[in-house]
Design a protein around this nucleic acid. Structure first.
Length: 282
DNA sequence: AACTGTCCCTGCAAGC
DNA sequence: TGCTTGCAGGGACAGT
C-alpha cells in the first residue's frame, strides 16, 4: 500500500517528469476519484495550467500551480501514478489523464490509475485549505520533512490512551505511517504494538523515534515496498524492493530474523492485521 | 475530547 | 472446475 516511502518515490518521479510541464488537456473517467469537488472543477482547475512543484506531506502529494491553486493527489489503497507516452494503451481503472506539454509539444500523459477507487485528485485554493482540505490542514508531523525528535514524539504521545500502533497509524500525530511500516517500526524498536503509550521512558521514546526515522529512510532508499496484492509501482512502472527487508509484515508463523528465538505472530491491533515477534518485542 | 468500529471498493485467494 | 466468501487497507464518519 502506498505509505510515506512509496509516496516519496512517486513524488521524485513527479519532480522529474511533471514539474515544469503545461497541462493542455484533462480527462476524468470515474467521478468518484474527483468526489471532493467535481469533474468540471478538476478539468477547469488544471487545463492550461503549468505545474510548478511536486511536494509531499505524509501520504499527500501536493503540486503548486501557476494559477495560484494547488493540486492534491492521494493514492490511498491502490492508487498509482504512471507517466506514459501520448496515446499509449491505458490500463483498466485509469480514472484521470493529464496531457502534458513541454514547449507547446505534448510529450507525455500522467495517468491516475486506481482499482479500488479510494484515491482522489483535487485542485484547491490554498486560502481555503481549512474548509476544503481539513484532513490535510490537520496533518501531524512528517518525520522526514519536519523537525522530529524524541522529545517531540514524547509530547505527541503524552497522556494518550489507546495503544502504540493506533497512535502510529493516526495521521494527526505522525503523518505517513501505514499498517506495514507501523509493524516494521515497532519490531525494530522492540515494542509490542498493543503497548500503552502513556508513560514511555526517554530511552523507549528514543528507540521508537530512531526506528521511525530508520525504517522510513531505508524504505525510501529502496523505492518503497511492492506487495503481491497491490502492485505498487513508481511513475516509470518500477517496483520497490523494501519488501525484501520486511522482518515482520507478511511473515506470520516464521521465525524472527532478529532474535532467532521467537516466532512472528499475527493478531488484530487497532482494527488492523498486525505482525510482531513473540520474543523480542515487549 | 478522544477513542473504536464501520464503510467505501475491487481483485485475488481460499474453500466448498 | 466454478462459484461464493472473505480479506486487504486509508481515512471519513458515526457511535460510544
Amino acid at each position: 500500500m502506498p505509505e510515506l516511502p512509496e509516496v516519496e518515490t512517486v513524488r521524485r518521479g513527479l519532480q522529474e517528469n511533471v514539474v515544469g510541464r503545461l497541462v493542455v488537456k484533462v480527462e476524468v473517467g470515474r467521478e468518484r476519484t474527483v468526489r471532493r469537488t467535481s469533474r468540471e472543477a478538476l478539468i477547469d482547475g488544471l487545463t492550461g495550467v503549468q505545474i510548478l512543484s511536486a511536494t509531499r506531506r505524509g501520504k499527500y502529494l501536493i503540486c503548486d500551480l501557476d494559477s495560484g491553486q494547488k493540486l492534491m493527489m492521494h493514492l490511498r489503497m491502490s492508487g498509482r501514478l504512471i507517466i506514459a507516452k501520448p496515446n499509449s494503451v491505458r490500463p483498466a481503472h485509469t480514472h484521470v489523464v493529464m496531457h502534458l506539454a513541454k514547449s507547446n509539444v505534448v510529450v507525455s500523459e500522467l495517468w491516475f490509475v486506481d482499482p479500488r477507487t479510494f484515491g482522489e485528485v483535487v485542485v484547491f485554493d490554498p486560502d481555503l485549505i481549512e474548509t476544503q482540505m481539513p484532513d490535510l490542514a490537520n496533518l501531524g508531523v512528517d518525520p522526514l520533512i519536519d523537525e522530529f525528535t524524541p522529545e517531540i514524539l514524547g509530547e505527541l504521545f503524552k497522556n494518550r490512551r489507546g495503544n502504540l500502533k493506533a497512535l502510529l497509524l493516526n495521521q494527526h500525530f505522525v503523518a505517513g505511517i501505514g499498517n506495514i511500516y507501523a509493524d516494521e517500526i515497532l519490531h525494530l524498536a522492540k515494542l509490542r504494538p498493543d503497548r500503552l503509550p502513556g508513560r514511555l521512558t526517554h530511552v523507549t521514546l528514543s528507540r521508537l523515534h530512531g526506528a521511525i526515522v530508520e525504517v522510513l529512510n531505508k524504505a525510501v532508499n529502496a523505492g518503497g515496498s511492492t506487495l503481491k496484492d497491490t502492485q505498487y509501482v513508481d511513475l516509470d512502472g518500477q517496483t520497490g524492493s523494501f519488501q525484501d527487508q520486511h522482518r515482520v509484515y507478511g511473515r506470520a508463523g516464521l521465525p524472527c530474523l532478529s532474535c532467532r528465538k521467537g516466532r512472528i505472530l499475527m493478531t488484530v491491533v487497532a482494527g488492523r492485521t498486525t505482525c510482531y515477534c513473540s520474543a523480542c518485542q515487549h
